[in-house]
Design a protein around this nucleic acid. Sequence first.
DNA 1: TTCCCGGCTG
DNA 2: CAGCCAGGAA
Length: 212
Amino acid sequence: MEIYGLLLARYGHRHWWPAETPFEVCVGAILTQNTNWGNVEKAIANLKRDRLLTPGALRDVPLDLLAEAIRPSGFFNVKSVRLKGFVSWLFERFGGSLERMFAGEWGELREELLKVPGIGRETCDSILLYAGEKPSFVVDAYTRRLFAALGLVSEKADYETVRSLFMADLPADPRLYNEYHALIVQHGKEHCRKRPRCTGCPLHVCPSTMLP
DNA sequence: TTCCCGGCTG
DNA sequence: CAGCCAGGAA
């Protein structure tokens, strides 16, 4: 059985992305940069408490209040500017409407989104896939670690190379990409960590199990 | 390569 | 309490 099937059999459906709205997904994708999800949840809860989880509210809130609200997610001075930058771009380009943002051809949207300061490749693909349900595969640290450990990609392959490998091998199905990435993350947390925990690994092929 | 930062785990 | 963890820009 292939990797996806083994991971699905072990971990089951992950029901990603944990958010109430597509806009919440976009905000979460920026807040989770270099930050674990637990901290992002606290920041999101603060934004909801302060009624800031809409494009208009984020556009209008003073920068320092926004920074204070998202403090638990870390790098709050950078991320507050990034959130402001994203929503101001969203307003000037799509009138503040995610529906309009996702309405066109998503390949062009991806190129445009990547030009927004603070939206890198992983954040961009997370927004496309989890907020817009576009079949754009998300590559993260767990993806690289796992597939390098399996010998399927070089450790130093760049983002676009790894993403292209997945997309060339898989049907362009957003539900599949959604599930697959979520499974890779779960597997990364449980087994394929920086310091690998190979006992009980559903793939039983990681480096330390192949030691003499 | 370095800077940007908090919260959880051992 | 030290160590760990997680993207993007310059």
